[in-house]
Design a protein around this nucleic acid. Structure first.
Lengths: 322, 322
DNA sequence: ATACATTATTGAAACGTTTCCAATCCAGTG
DNA sequence: CACTGGATTGGAAACGTTTCAATAATGTAT
């Protein structure tokens, strides 16, 4: 593996000169440049990025820490994040935490050791207190404190929109179905929006939340369907949750949308191959991803951002369930 | 940011000693060890992994190069790959090539600069001739030459199985639907298996392939449905392809499975929320992912593998389309 | 031609580790 | 008590870059 020194020797110049040729920094005579480039060709020299990172005390690696890349919402997000990073020559390191706090901490520790340039975090834990030094972090959907910028969709407006669309579709007794997640999660605002809009329209509503994330989901849905037989509309906190509800309801002979209208949140179905196609509040995933990375770049550059939370607008996408 | 030298000073020992404490290498007296550990605590010292990689001339980073993480098959694969890597303390770098040859080459080049320990490649290009030095590579579903080990599902048997299942479901005039991809792709064996089994059972079959990957898919399916009206069974090369066919067929009033039985390949639907649930040839994604990484580790260790291609068995999973 | 300004180039230090050899320590032995 | 050998520790080189001060070469105006 030839080094910059070998190139310098072959070209008959100093290593510093080779460095300047490679990086286009400083000035070098055209003739010299040519000599060096020939030597590089001849030796098939490839700059050692690790040595460079080491010397410069920074890398162009950004980590994406999320529960599971398998989740279609996250994989779409990851796709755009990688794309945006690549535009600036940054690389993406992928970390699946499984949502487990100890794994999140383990990864955070590892990322510090590896001196990543920045972190995009979708975590359940309070990341902030566990990151000792000052690695720039942007969080998606989790709002901790000032130090960690948050990018999210407009969950509150999404909740209001969902309620309005349910009503528009004919629902008179709508319910919100969700599961209690992290207190830092912005997604809880979906519920707030739902409630506020119902109140302002004078509509009776029901809130039915799964308290424990690991609780049996089948039991949860069954209980709901038994206890609230007159519900005629459901706003589920995510598309996945909505789909589970629909399946469970179908098994009990409840028809969607005839008996119950259903609206999800996310908009993960990017193809209309499978049915029913969910009516949903669509998050602007691509915009969120690109904004996240742009903000992260700014933080890496040392700029301070004017806002703590950036909320992007959502839209209602009509499917077959309302 | 404290360095190993600061620790050494505070503890009143040499840097070499600190290094030995950190890495548990060589021998160090318990009393000394304690002193050093205290200093580490006090300074909040974090070893610099980049410096380490630099010095050791190797990193624990493995790259996954694939068309798009957004594709559910790949995101499932990536999930297990990351998990298996993490077990040995390796990290995953994610590269979306979009399937574009130039982007694949660009990434390959970058990965060499970054001295990754190994590469998992799902590429359209002939990777082999474009990787100058000897980074260990394991490929999924693409069989190049001896240098790059290939892990794949048993596509040939999968093809035979699909044909048998279509016949079992009552199809008398089955067709294979696929698109011509890379000549290196193992997935073409699905067609071969389909054909061989049809021949051996004395069944008439049809092959209808989309020649150009970028060709309009709607036109392709429409043409097929117009020209082959008597087809009563379809084996599509992937689940996605099958789903597209079903959608197109439905629009023309052709019912699945009453008029046409459909079998896909992959088994990407890990939940039964959306319908129809595809009958499919399920790839053992988790096994493939873990085997890929285990083989890659062996190559990184310098072992030579006994086989060029590792084929894992597939199963038929009954859905609602046969 | 001379002095000066500008452009090119060199050489060496520095980044934070690991590792090897040599030096030192210490317990046990004859 | 001197000696031996293993355990422990110190010190320095090396990994491949970038960068900076110092020097050399070149060009420019007088």
């Amino acid at each position: 593996m030839p080094s910059i020194r070998d190139v310098a020797n072959l070209a008959g110049v100093a290593v510093g000169t080779v460095s300047r040729v490679i990086n286009n920094s400083g000035s070098v005579k055209p003739a010299t440049r040519r000599k060096v480039e020939e030597a590089i060709q001849q030796l098939n020299y490839i700059p050692n990025e690790i040595a460079r990172n080491f010397k410069m005390r920074k890398s162009k690696m950004v980590a994406l820490l999320l529960p599971s890349i398998w989740n279609p919402f996250f994989s779409e997000l990851a796709y755009y994040i990688e794309d945006e990073l690549d535009r600036e020559g940054f690389k993406l390191m992928l970390c699946n935490s499984g949502g487990k706090p100890e794994k999140e901490l383990y990864y955070l520790d590892m990322l510090q050791q590896n001196k990543v340039a920045g972190i995009v975090g979708i975590t359940y834990n309070d990341i902030e207190n566990n990151i000792s030094n000052n690695i720039p972090i942007v969080s998606i959907d989790r709002h901790f404190t000032k130090n960690i910028t948050c990018v999210t969709s407009d969950n509150y407006e999404g909740g209001r929109l969902a309620l309005r669309e349910l009503v528009k579709a004919g629902s008179r007794k709508p319910a919100f179905l969700g599961s209690v997640t992290s207190v830092f999660s912005e997604t809880m605002k979906r519920k707030e929006g739902f409630i506020d809009e119902a109140k302002s329209l004078g509509i009776n509503y029901t809130i039915f939340e799964k308290p424990d994330p690991v609780l049996d989901e089948e039991a949860y849905f069954t209980e709901f369907l038994n206890d609230y037989r007159d519900i005629d509309g459901v706003f589920a906190i995510t598309d996945m949750f909505a789909a589970q509800f629909i399946e469970r309801a179908s098994k009990l002979g409840i028809r969607v949308p005839q008996d119950v209208k259903v609206i999800g949140y996310d908009g993960i179905q990017n193809h209309s191959f499978f049915h029913p196609i969910l009516s949903t509040i669509r998050q602007p995933v691509e915009d969120m991803a690109r904004m996240t990375i742009k903000l992260l770049f700014k933080k890496i550059e040392g700029e301070t951002l004017e806002k703590d939370v950036y909320r992007l607008p959502v839209i209602f996408r009509q499917g077959e369930t309302t």
